[in-house]
Design a protein around this nucleic acid. Structure first.
Length: 807
RNA sequence: GCCGGAGUGGUGAAACUGGCAACCACGCACGCCUCAAGAGCGUGUGGGCGAAAGUCCUUGAGGGUUCGAGUCCCUCCUCCGGCACCA
């Protein structure tokens, strides 16, 4: 029998089924079905050229879960697309003299083939490609809506600037303070930039009610938003009656210890209040701070240096004149860019005061008594001392009381600030969505009228190594007429951050072709919001936060009926190779194709899932791939051999039910590795089984394996004369009564040490278990000379005989 | 420094609400099959002592709770990830 079976040949059967599935439309999802709809999305990739092992690790298990949900009775939409705008395409244009569009198209074509090779059950009719005008016109449409709502605005902002390439860089293009391309240290430059007002949603973004997201991601977003409660207070500046220095503090209870103030070097008041005597020193310091910003300024433990402005402010609570300094440890981008410095109760202020001989005055005491000297800052809470009318007040109460007093006096009050800053969305780059704005000398800034959308990216642009934005040099693009007055005007040449594209793409999948709205609401109502979203943990903050923000904004404008895009989120860990996360830009990608050629896609899929827990990630090491390949070979042989004659085998039947229950629970929980281990165990047992139990178990094994290894199971299903595609079958059912063992191994312990193991029938009463244990000869030996105190019985598991200590 | 996550055989790893530590694999060793190689199949494989039966030890370190701890509590160490002068 056995020798008639042909060899398992993935190189033959995989292409065969690729063709057949494409021809039969197996992966096309209907919007209306006799089963409930389920929207399952895996983060789309950047079309970097080819799918590497990291992409497989993201996709293969997700595809398995999508297929599983189909067999479990859902109508699953599992779409795919490409995050097709972005800088690497532009760099490729410069390096290889190839247009970004052509480079991107070539990469997408190759990657689509690779997805097909993988066996991913993608409905390609719904593909979304963000660099097509049909897509990005809706970025532009949204931009205009945001503008109307005050959610998009233009402001001067410091941005990352590479002096050699003469271009602005995105944050992600700044690596260790240097330009990713030429490694020149990056400096800050002030430029007019476009922002999305994400801070308007800061509070709502802190709430995660009703969504099932990993704790880790919620914590990361919460920290990123960084809510702080405290007070905002303003002090007068001596000799400048029109100016006040506003500052934020989380410790208003320490205000009587504010012996000086510090402004960020970029603070607008610096130029106004600096005294002539200090001007030169201040100017030099400010210039230096700007130049060194990225590399030095952010380095962790540097010495705090600053200079005096020569000006004085008045501490409104003590009435004292206090000097105003500038120092780069105060950030212009956080709070108001100014602080009251309380050296006795803040480590940074303490260090600064020590260095420059500024007064250090204790105002919070752990025990309520005053201390003469402050050897080191006390940052905890305590009782206010030397604090005028507040002396004797506890910190918590003092915080509130001081803030209230400031409010009463009209100089401030309680306040909440966030670390989160508005989202800078403009990029001085070609390969992105043009921002739909026109500048007219007479009318000023004019939005492009909706009827004129999309503002199409011109194909021809000068791509040169000198850098700068190629779009700004395309005269035919820049020159236009004012929509408002008709006179000659200039277009905005900045393009949008690609995170804008990805913040709403999941709303496009249900009908990517609709050209009257960003989303086909009638169709989308059947799918949205996303029931399951999977992707890399590296997107925990940026993409996932932006998508939440855009969703809330669209909801408030009446375009969406929900405020959270992703109901359920799970992140796979990273595939690490050579000590770093695998990615094209890091140059450490491992191509999957050679493994596919050698073992087939099913083996590689299975191996990806077998390596370890999916959410944990893994170091890439292909050594174990042989094991899963052997497993598929065994399945092949078993499925094509005759089961033989024999009676039903209850042990096999029970194992089968147990396996179905385990695999079901495991796939649901993304525990692919243990699901595969369970199927391997079943397979190992089936090799020695015969008769109807084996026949039934083999068929159900194939069904369970189908989401993991879609090709081999489809081929075997066909050869075993199964009807239709295996991928249209229902997931096997199990009987809970059959998931228990009929025979158990009872562990007999004496004083917690294992002394014997006895085979017994399952479900015996405690009294009987005790008798069995006491009858064990080995237990008797161990019990010799001891008095039994009590016995602990865990049904079907263990009996522990506890003896009394004899002395 | 702060916030997460994790430390288990030679390796990847498993272990439900505390109940047989190491499932399933890789690798290795020996055997079967073969002219041979590969593939396939079988047996063994945490460590110590022992010829064996057996026996003691073992989940980063140390303490604790418990009849019983990889799992719970305390202290500490190491690694990975994120944030990092955030007022």
């Amino acid at each position: 029998m056995r020798d008639k079976i042909d060899r398992y040949a993935p190189d033959v059967i995989e292409p065969k089924w690729q063709k057949r599935w494409a021809a039969s439309g197996l992966h096309e999802t209907a919007d209306v079905a006799d089963r409930p709809n389920f929207y399952f999305v895996t983060m789309y990739p950047y079309p970097s050229g080819e799918l590497h092992v990291g992409h497989w690790y993201a996709m293969a298990p997700s595809d398995c879960a999508a297929r599983f949900l189909r067999m479990r009775g859902h109508n699953v939409l599992f779409p795919m697309g490409f995050d097709a705008f972005g800088l690497p395409a532009e760099n490729a244009a410069i390096k290889r003299n190839m247009h970004p569009a052509a480079w991107t198209e070539k990469n997408m074509a190759h990657m689509r083939e690779q997805f097909t090779m993988m066996g991913a059950s993608i409905d390609w009719r719904r593909e979304v490609v963000t660099c097509y005008p049909e897509y990005y016109r809706w970025n532009q449409w949204m931009f205009l809506r945001f503008l109307e709502q005050g959610l998009a605005y233009r402001a001067m902002a410091p941005v990352n600037w590479c002096p050699k390439d003469q271009t602005v860089l995105a944050n992600e293009q700044v690596i260790g303070g240097r330009c990713e391309r030429c490694e020149t240290p990056v400096i800050k430059r002030d430029l007019e930039q476009w922002f999305f007002r994400i801070t308007r949603y800061a509070d709502e973004l802190l709430r995660f009610e009703g969504i099932d997201w990993p704790e880790r991601v919620r914590v990361m977003q919460t920290n990123w938003i960084g809510r702080s409660e405290g007070a905002e207070i303003a002090f007068d500046v001596h000799g400048h009656p029109a100016e006040k220095i506003r500052f934020f503090t989380t410790r208003p209870d320490t205000i009587y210890g504010a012996t000086f103030m510090v402004l960020a070097p970029e603070h607008p008041l610096v130029a106004k209040i600096t005294t002539p005597a200090q001007r030169r020193e201040v100017d030099e310091y400010v210039a230096r701070a700007r130049l060194m910003e990225e590399i030095e300024r952010t380095s962790a433990e540097r010495i705090k240096k600053g200079v005096s402005t020569g000006a004085f402010a008045e501490n409104a609570f003590t009435g004292e004149r206090i000097p105003v300094w500038i120092a780069d440890y105060v950030l212009s981008t956080y709070g108001t860019g100014a602080i009251m410095a309380v050296p006795a109760h803040d480590e940074r202020d303490f260090e600064f005061a020590k260095r420059y001989g500024l007064e250090i005055r204790e105002v919070i005491s752990p025990d309520g008594s005053e201390h003469a000297a402050v050897a080191e800052p006390y940052v905890g809470e305590g009782i206010m001392v030397r604090s005028g009318p507040f002396t004797g007040t506890r910190s918590e109460e003092g915080k509130r009381a001081v803030a209230e007093e400031a409010k009463r006096r009209g100089i401030g009050g309680p306040s909440v600030i966030y670390r989160l800053r508005d989202w800078l969305v403009s990029r001085q780059r070609y390969w992105g969505t043009p921002i739909p704005i026109i500048y007219c000398d007479d009318c000023g800034m004019v939005p492009v009228p909706e009827k004129d959308l999309p503002v199409v990216l011109p194909r021809d642009a000068p791509f040169t190594a000198e850098g700068g934005n190629p779009l700004a040099r395309v005269e035919s693009f820049v020159r236009t007429t004012c929509p408002s007055c008709g006179k000659a005007a200039r277009r905005e040449t900045d393009t949008m951050d690609t995170f804008v594209d990805s913040s709403w793409y999941v709303y496009r999948y249900p009908d990517p072709k609709i050209d009257t709205a960003f989303m086909n609401e009638a169709v989308a109502r059947r799918w949205l919001p996303v029931a399951r979203y999977t992707g890399g943990i590296e997107h925990a903050i940026l993409h996932l936060l932006y998508a939440r923000f855009v969703t809330k904004a669209l909801r408030d404008m009446g375009y969406l009926w929900f405020g959270e895009p992703f109901r359920h989120l799970r992140n796979q860990g990273n595939i690490v190779f050579g000590g770093r996360k695998m990615s094209k830009s890091r140059g450490n990608v491992q191509p999957p194709d050679e493994y596919v050629a050698r073992y087939g896609a099913d083996t590689l899929r299975l191996f990806m899932m077998f390596m370890g827990p999916w959410t944990q990630g893994s170091d890439w090491n292909a050594e174990g791939i042989e094991g899963v390949h052997r497993f598929l070979n065994r399945v092949w042989t078993i499925a094509l051999s005759e089961p033989g004659e024999g009676p039903r085998d209850e042990t096999i039947d029970r194992l089968l039910h147990r396996t179905i229950a385990k695999v079901t629970a495991d796939v649901d929980a993304y525990h692919f590795n243990t699901a595969i281990a369970a199927m391997m165990e079943l397979t190992n047992e089936l090799q020695h089984a015969h008769g109807p139990s084996r026949a039934e178990a083999t068929e159900k094994l194939l069904l369970m394996l189908a989401p993991f290894a879609p090709y081999i199971t489809e081929e075997l299903w066909e050869r075993r004369a199964g009807t239709d595609s295996i991928h249209r079958q229902r997931w096997p059912a199990w009987d809970p009564a059959m998931t228990t063992l009929d025979e158990i191994t009872l562990v007999v312990q004496v004083d917690g040490k294992v002394r014997d193991r006895v085979t017994a029938r399952a479900g015996l009463p405690e009294a009987e278990l005790r008798e069995i244990a006491l009858a064990s000869p080995k237990a008797k030996v161990a019990l010799d000379g001891r008095t039994i105190d009590r016995t602990i019985i865990v049904p079907d598991r263990l009996v522990n005989i506890v003896t009394r200590r004899s002395s």
